[in-house]
Amino acid sequence: MHFQHITVAGSGVLGSQIAFQTAFKGFKVSVYDINDEAIGKAKGRFRELMKRYQEDLGASEEEVRAAYERISFYTDLAEAVREADLVIEAVPEVREIKTEFYKKLGQYAPKKTVFATNTSTMLPSQFAEATGRPEKFLALHFANEIWLHNMAEVMKHSGTDEKVFEAVIDFARAIGMVPLPLHKEQPGYILNSLLVPFLDAAQSLYIRGIADPEIIDKTWMIATGSPKGPFAIMDVVGINTVYNIVSAKAKAGDEEARKLAEKLKKEFIDRGKLGVATGEGFYCYPHPKYEQPDFLKG
């Protein structure tokens, strides 16, 4: 099983990154989104990615231009998947939207086409039946800024064909990722199964008044050699995302989460401090304290 033509469905932040990285590694890529406005925004993201690849990877102008020229754009799903060997779905994290998308995709895609979901919060078995081809369906999850954080979690469900699983692992490697196979379904995959409890522990220390974010981050960085502590990571993830997760726990009756949600809303979100994206969160950017040479000193 050899993939040549890749379709990325959904051209948001991560969808655009997946598409560009795949094109950069020499594959023909079709990008699908629901309307011309969404496609227009995607083209803007690709222009920014071209700059980042030159800055971060030392790619040449010719290399990034060639990658962009390997990308085609569609608002017609049937046209977008007409030649697809693999469709990577990166549509919004709403179960109904994904289910409806897979029902349509199953009608339009050739029988050979493998489907992969990039969901970070749901399991492939939730959509396997809707695809109409459960044996050719699995999860392929990337981290943000995939050209730098080049991991790809490949997770099958109980009905995934082993050859499909191996083919997607090979594809992940071909686009410059380190493939991380998961042989059983796991909510949160590997990364978030490790990361979420870590961030929860840091938030608990903070909201209970044990220590402030800088001290908690400093503790972790000195003890482990990590370049970032948990609150620096939350700034990268985005305070909105952290707030949404904490709010869900608060609604379920978690009193500590309720206090934290109120604090995040009042002191961060209402003041536009959403993390790296807005220039301020727990730290100020682009030169946060934790990157300064004296941060880890007494």
Results as ranks from 00 to 15, higher is better:
E214C: 09
F115L: 06
T278P: 00
A143Y: 15
D170H: 14
Y285H: 11
G15E: 06
V87M: 13
H141E: 02
G209I: 01
I169E: 04
H157I: 05
P293I: 12
K259C: 05
H287N: 15
D56S: 04
E62Y: 08
G15C: 09
M221F: 02
V178L: 15
F137M: 06
E214W: 10
S16E: 08
Q107G: 02
L205R: 03
D36P: 01
N240D: 14
K98M: 07
L123V: 08
L264P: 00
E55H: 12
T121K: 10
F73I: 12
V8K: 05
M151E: 14
E37Y: 14
K25S: 13
V178P: 01
T119E: 06
T113Y: 06
N240K: 02
P124V: 02
F115V: 06
E55N: 13
R70L: 11
A66E: 09
L205M: 13
G176V: 08
R95P: 00
F165Y: 15
L123N: 07
T117G: 01
F171A: 03
P179D: 03
D161Q: 06
A90D: 07
V64I: 05
R52H: 13
V31K: 00
G275L: 05
M155G: 10
P286T: 02
R47Y: 10
Q17F: 01
M151K: 15
D76S: 13
L274T: 08
L123S: 07
E162D: 13
P227K: 11
A250T: 05
A78D: 14
V236Q: 11
I88N: 02
E48G: 13
S158W: 12
Q292S: 14
L57F: 04
L123Y: 11
F20D: 02
K273N: 08
Y74D: 11
Y283H: 04
K163E: 15
P134M: 02
Q186A: 15
M177D: 01
H5L: 08
Y189L: 13
A116C: 14
I146A: 11
M1Y: 07
V31M: 03
M221K: 04
R173T: 10
G229K: 01
K297V: 11
K112R: 13
G26L: 12
E135M: 00
S226V: 03
K263Y: 13
E166I: 12
H287V: 12
L191Q: 13
I245E: 07
E48L: 11
G12Q: 00
D170S: 15
A252M: 11
K98Y: 04
E48I: 09
K266V: 13
K104C: 11
N192I: 04
L199Y: 09
K112E: 12
F101D: 06
L105Q: 08
L264G: 00
A201N: 03
W220H: 10
D217M: 07
G106L: 10
T119A: 05
Y243R: 09
N144Q: 04
S226A: 15
T131P: 07
V178I: 15
Y285T: 09
W147P: 00
S193N: 09
P230A: 05
G40I: 07
K104P: 09
E280Y: 05
S16W: 08
Y283G: 05
E267S: 05
Q186N: 14
K218G: 07
V154C: 03
D294T: 11
E37V: 12
A248H: 10
A78E: 15
I146N: 10
K251S: 15
F295H: 05
K41T: 10
G44P: 03
Q54Y: 01
T219N: 12
F3N: 10
L180I: 14
G272P: 10
F101I: 01
E69N: 14
Q107L: 14
